[in-house]
């Protein structure tokens, strides 16, 4: 029962790290869903990214190559989903679930030889002056590059969806694919691009777990992070800023509950363990009380003949 032993500075710093994997995956899924496609395979793409990134980082000795490979691995798996849903016009929910199961199996197979190996370390950025600011320096300016990449991606996606022509077209495809098609936009092509982007982001999120947060490879190590990312997108009303908030909340409460346990708080452990899920959903549902809604064509199959 010693609140004093929990350092807010370190807590906030860990929050940024804990939030990054789900943030990356959720941002990718956000773009996919804004294009009108529901891909439930996030978990599968994350774990595939985790092993691809890990294997390449170990073999090349470079975490940077690892992350590139992770994005590639996630995108390749997403390509399978794109082929099924955009070309073969298969049901998106079923295809997405299949993708998760496939990804989990594939990753265990690929990871056979990588259990118990240490990956090359990823350096924390030491930003000279900024990193020396008391409190803020440790919280904001002492992380690895991927944390900042995630934050930059939030801003970029927000700006793209809201202000750019590309974002407008993407949203048009997601809201009403028939109208977008009538205007001459290549609906299928745009959706495939969005799906690939989503796969790459999920792969990066997975590699963040296997290369930085843990860091090692074990089967099934994403442990449901992909499903949390999926839920975040919905509860965040398909808005990039709220995805960031949700990811921070989830990461924050996850870290906080471990800290509360360590500090000997008299709350039963079972309640602490469920708190990240409860609090994140509660806050985002309350925030979603405004007029925002899902993209109108979400999950619907498009064929140019209709």
């Amino acid at each position: 029962m010693d609140m004093g032993s929990i350092s807010p500075e370190l807590l906030l710093a860990s929050l940024m790290v804990a939030a990054t994997p789900i943030l990356l995956a959720a941002l990718g899924e956000l773009v996919v869903e804004r294009a009108g496609v529901l891909n439930l395979g996030v978990e599968g793409m994350m774990i595939t990214g985790a092993i691809c990134g890990f294997a390449v980082a170990v073999n090349s000795g470079s975490p940077a190559f690892g992350f590139v490979a992770a994005a590639g691995g996630g995108a390749v798996l997403a390509l399978l989903f794109a082929a099924l849903t955009q070309v073969a016009l298969a049901n998106q929910v079923a295809s997405g679930l299949a993708l998760t199961l496939f990804g989990l199996g594939l990753s265990s197979l690929l990871g056979q030889g990588y259990v118990g190996i240490k990956p090359p370390p990823v350096a924390r950025l030491d930003i000279p002056l900024l990193g020396d600011i008391p409190f803020l320096g440790r919280v904001l300016f002492s992380h690895d590059l991927m944390v900042y990449f995630g934050l930059a991606l939030v801003g970029l996606i927000w700006w793209m969806l809201k202000y750019s022509r590309a974002g407008l077209i993407l949203r048009a495809v997601g809201e009403n694919h028939d109208a977008a098609h009538a205007l001459g936009y290549k609906v299928v092509r745009i959706r495939v691009a969005a799906i690939l982007f989503g796969g790459a982001c999920a792969g990066l999120g997975g590699a963040y777990i296997s290369l930085i947060r843990v860091p090692q490879w074990t089967e099934g190590m994403t442990a449901g992070a992909g499903w949390i990312a999926l839920a975040l997108v919905v509860f965040a009303s398909w808005k990039a800023g709220r995805v960031l908030l949700g990811a921070w909340l989830f990461g924050g409460v996850t870290v906080l509950q471990l800290n509360l346990q360590a500090a000997g708080f008299a709350i039963p452990v079972e309640y602490l363990s469920m708190s990240p899920y409860l609090i994140t959903i509660l806050v985002l549902v309350i925030m979603a009380g405004d007029k925002s809604r899902a993209p109108a064509s979400l999950g619907r199959i498009f064929h140019a003949s209709q």
Partner: peptide, 13 residues
Amino acid sequence: AKEADAATALIEQ
């Protein structure tokens, strides 16, 4: 992942 987080929380305290 959970074991790593738990270790980190303990170290931070």
